[in-house]
Nucleic acid binder design. Structure first.
Length: 426
RNA sequence: GUCCCCAUCGUCUAGCCUGGUCCAGGACAACAGAUUUUCGAUCUGUCGACCGGGGUUCAAAUCCCCGUGGGGACGCCA
């Protein structure tokens, strides 16, 4: 039975890199019918906080990375660490240094078989003895980690490359304790554009940030799974079920992967488009928390379902419908409103639109097309200025459907404001 | 400094283990065209890589060695 764990320390929000580690452990457990355990490594009481702990748990849930056992807390297991340290002391494998207990690392060369990297040789004569228990009575990382992994019967340790140099120390501890070590799989790190590990300098680094930026959990799971792993069949857009089905440790690669926002955004767009309208409406309402009713929001969402790649983009479009304080884009005004005749055309359009009843997309379009024919102008000569006048932007969903959704009152009000401003009169 | 890891298009990657099917495949981005009232979506196309040098071999992106470059670890942090 495969048993894996994710062991974050609550000294910050769930980082993109940690989330990927959690994801790979989860994927492995789910693909093997194994057990996924959550363990909180909160031994550093100065830096740990409940706020971060709760944040990490919330983000794990949001991503859908459900665990089978835990969360366990290291601060509640100090007795176990102490007992184990004393056992090593009695066996003469550790010694005291003041209040601290130190493990004597045997001077041997060790070979570690890593599931990703293959054989790694290390020389333990080169490393210092290992602190087991600190002077303040708390356990040191490498020790607590091993004691817990034994207790929790962890079979596979899947973690970042940065832990490779902890592995020989931990293996020495397993040997001293007479326990066979678990299998190790060290995966490549996620890097920023400068090839250095993702840092605040990059901007958003926590899952919470990405949620706020309108990314979907399924898109993050999909994208993160592709960083350092690939299904090998050229298929990249996948749901969690499919990824689980295809996942294997064997296909994890060894090279650090740069985090690329463009691709995340593309995948997010794909997942949005994969949504049924019901699902999209629900995601949109959860994110935007609109004042309007669901029926109206549903129509709005339908217009933008294939036009936005993040929920934030959807929210921006939403704002255009809600507030009559239209923000006019300078370029759009320059290009479509400041032209001869535009004011006249908009005036006539306003008069005609006022008579359209009911104010539906079909009726609006019929009236507009008729007007275009009468005035002997191109459709574009009416459509573009109309769009800018009403939305403030040169891009939107189809004008006629936007107008219908906006409603006659708002449309007329916005048109009058633009006409009053006298654009187009020279 | 010492030890360890890594090296295919700008980016993510397939191929490498088991050498020939690879004048290296896919995706994102970029660019161009088609379509569209704009944008998006969609379709088509273009651009673009085996870090360098030696070796092994009839044959190397694939195996070996040496460089170089990048990263990590050397905490009573985790």
């Amino acid at each position: 039975m495969v048993r894996v764990r994710f062991a974050p320390s609550p000294t910050g929000y769930l980082h993109i890199g940690s989330a990927r580690t959690a994801l790979f452990n989860w994927l492995y457990a789910r693909s093997q019918g194994g057990v996924f355990i959550l363990r909180i490594e909160d031994t550093d009481q100065k830096r740990s906080s409940d706020v971060f702990m709760e944040g990490i748990i919330a983000d794990m849930k949001w991503l859908g990375l459900n665990w089978d056992e835990g969360p366990f807390f290291q601060t509640k297991r100090f007795d176990a660490y102490r007992a184990c340290a004393h056992e090593l002391l009695e066996k003469g494998l550790a010694y005291k240094d003041g209040e601290a207990i130190i493990f004597k690392i045997p001077d041997v060369k060790v070979k570690i078989h890593d599931l990703v990297h293959g054989e790694i040789e290390m020389d333990n004569t080169l490393i210092d003895d290992l602190v087991l228990m600190k002077s303040d009575g708390s356990p040191a990382y490498n020790f607590a980690c091993v004691v817990d992994d034994i207790e929790m019967q962890i079979t596979h340790v899947i973690r970042g490359d940065d832990h490779i140099s902890n592995t020989n120390k931990q293996v020495a501890l397993y040997d001293a304790l007479g326990i066979r070590p678990p299998k190790f799989a060290h995966m490549p790190l996620i890097l920023g554009p400068d090839k250095a590990p993702l840092s605040k300098r990059f901007g958003a680094v926590s899952i919470t940030d990405y949620r706020a930026m309108g990314y979907l959990p399924q898109a993050l799971v999909n994208y993160l799974s592709l960083l350092g792993w690939s299904p090998g069949d050229n298929k990249e857009f996948m749901g969690a079920e499919e990824i689980i089905k295809k996942f294997s440790l064997k296909r994890i690669n060894k090279t650090g992967a740069e985090f690329n926002l463009d691709k995340l955004r593309w995948i997010n767009g794909e997942h949005i488009r994969k949504f049924t309208l019901d699902e999209f409406v629900k995601a949109g309402m959860d994110f935007i928390k609109p004042e309007c009713g669901e029926a109206w929001f549903r129509k709005f969402a339908g217009l933008y379902h294939s036009r936005v790649k993040t929920l934030v983009e959807l929210k921006e479009e939403f704002g255009i419908f809600m507030s009559d304080d239209v923000r006019y884009n300078d370029d759009a005004v320059e290009k479509f409103l400041k032209k001869d005749k535009v004011s006249d055309i908009l005036s006539v359009t306003r008069e005609r639109l006022e008579k359209v009843d009911p104010f539906t997309q079909e009726n609006i379009e019929k009236e507009a097309r008729a007007l275009v024919a009468e005035l002997k102008i191109e459709s574009a000569d009416l459509i573009h200025p109309l769009r800018v006048a009403v939305t403030g932007k040169a891009v939107s969903a189809g004008v006629f459907e936007v107008l219908a959704l906006l409603g006659k009152d708002k449309v007329i009000k916005r048109l009058e404001k633009v006409i009053g401003a006298g654009y187009g009169r020279k």
